[in-house]
Design a binder for these strands. Structure first.
Length: 888
RNA sequence: GGGAGCUUAGCUCAGCUGGUUCAGAGCAUCUGCCUUACAAGCAGAGGGUCACUGGUUCGAACCCAGUAGUUCCCA
């Protein structure tokens, strides 16, 4: 069989993914095994795969694949969320293109369009995930607006309402004038903006005196209902009890005094517009001020303003400055930098606005979610996020859960038109409930709330309802088999950006309805940035197209590339060269396989005892057995501590350095007369075993190439696939002493190669190596050294060898006789340099040892280590001095 | 304005309880190799005032304080 010189990823990817699906390897149903569960953070249904997803889902796939190999019943649940604002914005835009206005449609008609959009375009991202190799149980795919999941959302609202956790009230909300909905605090992005601070003069009533107020929002002047001054500000103390005239509208408003005002900012006076600023709103509440809403939901000036009616808020700002200037009421205009809030979804400038909204009281309900993170029941990885989490949870605000949209679960609150409200699933149930509150109920007046619930109010149930949507109403005691088996889930992998949006709220929901955490570990990944440290985004155009990367480097290469540079919780500076490294690694594995596959195993000769297993191979096999156990132990520890990139790097080095560079070179048959000699069967079988073990260890990172090679090694049964192969086990009590001895041999071999490089000798030229020793302590490592250092002989001598290249490793002296290229002056120089180094080192050791406080305070192991350093270094210095003398 | 984190080789990062031969990887760099699995490779080498200043300690990259730069979160 001809095997290509380079690995072809796309072929393997096209072959194995459908094969895995066909064999149901991703499927999970409850059984006797222990479960290992991950619920996928549901991507936005409008989303397309970006680098952040790639990172996230690769990590999840690595975890789930390894768990599967460890014998767990691994279940990875995929799905999408309905992303109310994002989706609605998309659908509205699409309708607009067709000349349809959302306002002309009934709720039902609009939803029909939205569902149509979802069926057609939604969930592209899940298809893209398959290209990455994601081994989710696709049969379990969920959508937050699936009928049963939606019903669960309604159940939770009713439950919380009846428990008294939900209330409705007028509050200052972040209003998005573009999507015409309130958004939560977390969905507002504050950006630095260049603004104008306008100094406006307000006349004091009954005098010619003016006071100057600085504002960045002159368009809200019509909504002013007071001017506020710090009571300690002496400049204005004479104004107590006075009123001022609001320009443009000529309304009289009082001057009030409150510590809140910053004396240093602007002129130390503040115009109070309770309807349009959260702080002013609080002031207004405190001082019982009137509140005049001068803006419409669309961000235009309202009738209530009494001027500029219908003008856009930004146009009005320009116009009013001009008008005030003409009236001579502007004393100056300053350029300042301030923070302006933008909607995360529409990028419109957020307008603080008073409106009637539904809120969830967070204080009580969030307590267990805080406690159980602090006490370690839920682990955040890395731990530094516990601080952030704690801070947020201790200062948690009530959650505004209503959204003025159609796409989402409609709030199950019903009104009787006479001030009574109930929460119920259907109108019929609502009527029954309302009747008990209002005996004269006119059923015609019973109306349901028009708003829908925040999307996070769906996804906070995700780890529960993907398994059992009915549990909220049935109660935990009646949970179905799936939920009992899979809940709580094991690992949640997500971005720190949604630690509060989502992670904290899932924890809250978990304790509220399951009295149990929703996940054991939360692994927080970083943000994918470009080389310059900028967040990757479509708008900046600095993000590579993930699927193009997969085409270019292979899914395995990209997976490795992503994880090579991804420490937990830290942002990663992504660069395509990491994918290149991943691709190169795939190729390395491929070629190791090619070499092994190309070995000729001559069974006949083995039976005739003509091919003995060389000593060097025997030694190498023992060594690699030990090495594999040693490294596997390390890799397992890395996994258990969620150190993904360390686990990957350890795997990388085990394969590339230990297996390819040392083991394979050690067992590779000699090449004679342009032909490779056959390999003995014992060595060959051991090598195949090693290869299989390594492939298993590589598999979670690189599922495709490992499955491909697994099947190229030999013909296998249909179900004999690496994806469900058993994770290798560690050999008990592997020989650490042999590993250490081999390390010394490696050092020796490197030294010989180094001599070759220094003296410009061909690697083909065989050398002789003589160890100075009094006893002939030949070990079975010698044959390996002879082979890998390309020696004629490895011999022993009681005396030093004159005129040979000499060096010291540990406490042994070695000589390589060189017929030419040996210059005594050069050698002296080299040896003297080494001598200086060791003398300096000895000095530092001696200083330590002569320090009485060190000797009396340090632990005995530390002192004996220093003593050993001393004697070892003395020996070394002796050897080097001897060599120097022999050269003189 | 308040809070949290980060700063170790050119780049990206390890460094876990303060203590093994004067701080480790990977990539990149340099030198020599078209050696027969792999030039997407092989062999070898160089590269560091652990941000700065002070303190604690016999001993500090690690603990403490301050300074600077930087990132994030909250207002």
């Amino acid at each position: 069989m001809e095997i290509g010189k380079t690995y072809n990823p796309s072929e393997a990817e096209a072959k194995w993914y459908p094969f895995w699906i066909k064999n149901n390897f991703f499927k999970s149903t409850p059984d006797h095994r222990q479960p290992y569960t991950i619920v996928m953070p549901p991507p936005n249904v409008t989303g397309v795969l970006h680098m952040g997803h790639m990172l996230n889902y690769t990590i999840q796939d690595v975890l789930i694949r390894r768990a599967r190999m460890l014998g767990f019943n691994a279940c990875w649940v995929p799905g999408t969320d309905h992303a109310s604002i994002a989706t609605e914005t998309k659908v509205v835009a699409l309708l607009k293109e067709k000349g349809i206005n959302k306002t002309d449609l009934s709720r039902e008609e609009f939803l029909k369009h939205a569902w149509g959009w979802k069926e057609k375009y939604g969930g592209i991202i899940l298809e893209q995930l398959k290209k990455l190799g994601a081994s989710c149980d696709w049969d379990r795919t969920r959508f937050t607006m699936d009928e049963d999941l939606s019903e669960a959302v309604i159940d939770t609202f009713i439950d919380l309402y009846n428990k008294g956790h939900i209330y409705r009230g007028v509050r200052m909300v972040n209003w998005d004038p573009q999507s015409l909905t309130a958004v939560s605090d977390e969905e507002v992005i504050y950006k630095e903006a260049q603004s104008k601070l306008v100094y406006v003069k307000y006349q004091i009533e009954g005098s010619d005196e003016f006071m100057t107020v600085a504002t960045t929002r002159p368009e809200t002047i019509m909504g002013d209902t007071a001017i506020c001054i710090n009571p300690t500000d002496e400049r204005y103390s004479h104004l107590k009890g006075k009123q001022v005239i609001v320009p443009i509208v000529n309304r009289l408003v009082p001057i009030i005094f409150d510590e809140y005002v910053d004396k240093e900012f602007g002129t130390g006076t503040l115009k109070v517009t309770p309807a349009h600023d959260i702080n002013d709103f609080n002031l207004g509440q405190k001082h019982k001020l009137q509140s005049i809403d001068v803006l419409t939901p669309e961000g235009k000036i309202s009738e209530a303003a009494g001027a500029y009616i219908g003008l856009d808020r930004f146009a009005c700002r320009k116009q009013i400055i001009k008008d005030l200037e003409e009236l001579g009421l502007v004393s100056k205009i300053e350029d300042i930098k301030n923070k302006v809030g933008y909607s995360e979804r529409t990028n419109a400038v957020i307008e603080p606005r008073l409106s009637m909204q539904w809120f969830l009281k967070m204080e009580d309900i969030s307590k267990p979610a805080l406690e159980n993170v602090l006490n370690g029941e839920i682990k955040l990885i890395p731990e530094k996020f516990i601080n952030t989490y704690k801070h947020w949870m201790e200062n948690v605000h009530d959650w505004c859960i209503s959204r003025q949209l159609s796409w989402g679960q409609r709030i199950p609150a019903w009104y009787d038109g006479q001030g009574n409200t109930v929460a119920a699933k259907t109108k019929e149930e609502a009527i029954v409930l309302l009747k008990s509150k209002n005996s004269e109920l006119n059923t015609e007046n019973v109306k349901q709330d028009e708003d829908v619930l925040d999307t996070w109010f769906s996804s906070w149930l995700w780890p529960i309802t993907v398994f059992d949507p009915a549990v909220i109403r049935n109660g935990k005691a009646n949970a179905n088999e799936d939920l009992n088996y899979y809940y709580p889930t094991n690992d949640l992998v997500t971005a720190p950006e949604i630690l509060f949006f989502w992670v904290a709220r899932m924890a809250i929901a978990g304790y509220e309805w399951m009295q149990e955490k929703p996940f054991r570990n939360v692994y927080l990944t970083g943000i994918v940035r470009d080389k310059l440290g900028r967040k990757m985004s479509k708008s900046l155009g600095n993000s590579p197209e993930p699927l193009d990367l997969i085409l270019k480097y292979g899914a395995d290469g990209v997976r490795v590339g992503m994880l090579l540079c991804s420490p937990a919780g830290n942002d990663l500076m992504f660069d395509e060269s990491y994918c290149e490294q991943g691709r190169n690694f795939a190729n390395k594995i491929w070629n190791a396989f090619r070499l092994i596959k190309g070995f000729e195993v001559d069974l006949l000769k083995l039976n005739d005892n003509e091919i003995q297993q060389p000593n060097s191979s025997k030694t190498a096999i023992t060594w690699f057995e030990n090495k594999l156990s040693e490294q596997l132990e390390i890799i397992n520890v890395h996994y258990n501590k969620h150190r993904m990139s360390d686990a990957l790097m350890a795997t990388y080095k085990l394969v590339w350095d230990d297996f390819c560079a040392w083991y394979l070179e050690a067992i590779k048959p000699d090449f004679v007369d342009g032909k490779s000699l056959p390999i003995d069967k014992t060595t060959f079988d051991a090598t195949i075993n090693f290869l299989e073990s390594l492939l298993k260890i590589i598999h979670p990172w690189m599922p495709f190439i490992t499955e491909e090679i697994w099947h190229l090694i030999k013909n296998r049964e249909e179900k004999d696939c690496i994806i469900i192969a058993e994770w290798p086990t560690i050999k008990n009590n592997f020989d650490k002493k042999q590993l250490a001895e081999f390390e010394i041999s490696k050092e020796l071999i490197t030294m010989v190669r180094n001599v070759r490089a220094q003296k410009l000798l061909s690697p083909k030229e065989k050398l002789d190596l003589i160890e100075k020793t009094s006893d002939n302590n030949s070990s079975n490592l010698n044959s390996t050294i002879i082979k890998l250092a390309n020696l004629n002989s490895y011999s022993y001598s009681k005396n030093k060898i004159d005129g040979a290249y000499g060096f010291v490793i540990k406490n042994s002296e070695f000589y390589i006789p060189l017929t030419h290229n040996l210059n005594a002056d050069d050698e002296l120089k080299r040896l003297n340099k080494e001598l200086d180094y060791y003398k300096g080192f000895l000095k530092s050791v001696l200083i330590k040892l002569s320090n009485e406080k060190f000797v009396s305070n340090a632990k005995s192991e530390v002192i004996s280590a220093e003593r050993k350093k001393e004697s070892d270094t003395l020996n070394k210095i002796n050897s080097i001095e001897e060599q120097i003398n022999s050269l003189k």
